[in-house]
Design a protein around this nucleic acid. Sequence first.
DNA 1: CTGAAAGCGCTTACAG
DNA 2: CTGAAAGCGCTTACAG
Lengths: 342, 342
Amino acid sequence: MTIKGKATSLDIAHLAGVSQPTVSRALRGSPMVNPETRRRILAIARELNYKVDKNASNLRCQQSGTLALLFFEDPTPDDSLINPFFHSMLGSITRACALRGYDLLVSFQQLSDDWHADYEDSNKADGLILLGYGDYLVSRRRLEQLVGQGTHFVRWGAALPGQPGVSIGCDNFRGGLDMTAHLIAQGRRRIAFVGDASERYPEFRERYRGSVRAMDEAGIEARPEWLIDAISTEQSGHAATVELLQRVPDLDAVFAGSDLIAIGAMKALHESGLHVPGDVAVAGFDDIPLASFVTPGLSTVQQDTRQAGALLVDSLLGLIVGEAVESRTIPAKLVLRGSTGN
Amino acid sequence: MTIKGKATSLDIAHLAGVSQPTVSRALRGSPMVNPETRRRILAIARELNYKVDKNASNLRCQQSGTLALLFFEDPTPDDSLINPFFHSMLGSITRACALRGYDLLVSFQQLSDDWHADYEDSNKADGLILLGYGDYLVSRRRLEQLVGQGTHFVRWGAALPGQPGVSIGCDNFRGGLDMTAHLIAQGRRRIAFVGDASERYPEFRERYRGSVRAMDEAGIEARPEWLIDAISTEQSGHAATVELLQRVPDLDAVFAGSDLIAIGAMKALHESGLHVPGDVAVAGFDDIPLASFVTPGLSTVQQDTRQAGALLVDSLLGLIVGEAVESRTIPAKLVLRGSTGN
DNA sequence: CTGAAAGCGCTTACAG
DNA sequence: CTGAAAGCGCTTACAG
């Protein structure tokens, strides 16, 4: 007997001389099947290269075995590279899904556009993972909508009280504090922060707050002109640093909100004839691969993307099965290279 | 009337006072529906936040509206970063899918393991895109299996005659030729190729063949000791270059099979006290973002990932609808920076 | 341990 | 233009 087209469980049933439900049970490892019968069924299934039709089984079970990753890119990525940090997150999320037997749908979205977030409504995915960058004030309303609709989702970002939904983030405050304490220990006293630390960018804000705390503890008064806005691109970091140098010529350290900003800052400093770290120390945040390739190597704060990916996926799976899931913070770790001194 | 759980087309039918098939027709934009009826149905659907159940419609239509991207990583990526070139490809493939109304499943695979390539058999995807690196001799048998099973797939790689399935790749030969011609024009005469140019790595092989052709044309005889194996990682490029310098102390140029190799090579050259490009010119392939950040900037061959992603997706969609699809080659473009001279 | 029956939510002939 | 019917390929009570 040859099967026309793809084999179905019914084909197997005929070949094995059993009913179709028995095939289904055998395939799914149900204990209520005679071992001999199961063996026969599995052999036939293998021979026909049979695979369960996921559309059918998902329809029946009302779930999909799939998670969707929505990646946000604002501003548009055509003129600036996507932060490599997110590539690392994507990799760890993919692997975490695979380890747990879930497939991952990936979708790139503009933060400002309508989100194609209906993967769950259409039963293509059981929940969403949100990742990327952009203005939190813009995304916040959408997050509230998702909560309102009962969508299952987790996001990577600052895990702060009062946020809609579940967030997983790193300890931005602690990272900012530790790095700034390190700069101070290296003798730095006029430490600028390059990054938009408004409520639009809560992660930068936390990093900045940590930085200010470290200065407080060292008896240094943080000056308002030491804070300058930038978004997380090299270009923005470069431009901001150029302006910063006008305002604060006697700067002795730059703590950048991200590594990309830091790399732009280093470039601006070089162009101004300033030596890193001799004249100005530079530190970043993320520990992207690039950080170890620039000259001097960039000191930065590492976020454990492997743990982050696993935590995002596990939290989402928890939400899906109805557990109470809390926002969580993972540790930040200093990685010291040449840019902050030896 | 409140709907318990998710709304279905039947719920809408009841509310609109029509039959369920009419709802389906209206939602799918069938012309055979009274405009007034359609309006009513769409209004109700919007209000209920109704979304078509993809499992049900896919089951019925026997297709999924989804493509699967299998990304291969050999050797294991834990100790070396994934080639950023593939991140760029992933982005362009994702966008190309979205533009065409397809969703994308992403899966990371070990080249040597069993491939989880049953997305099509299980009707989770209509076809596969294969991307990544590793030994072609290992993957070739699997590709043949896929062809044998009638799986729809395209792969990124050297598009050479006699390969199983459809391949999209860049003009590696031309890229190798052009870059080597440039090196020769810069006065270089002893040009090593760092990369495994055996049949295990057809892309490297083509780049190397192009390089040799350029030397031929310039009357330079390529010497066997100028060729040294490496896989596409910085570490491998570093190690190979260290050995190469032993063998060929009077080297004046290194053409690396990839940018990552080139960056490892530059590091090895620096460690040996050799100046780039003063003593030894260095060129790479891919134009990863890192290439413009190293010092000096790395001259390289750019592959148009945007075009590549679109072509991969379009070719796969062509295969799925049963068109005759050919392997294709896209142009390679020199990007000259400081590492090959001014 | 196994089978007959129902049903997941759609789409598509078929008949009117 | 619309509805009644069938069926996509599964899984899961239910009965034996």
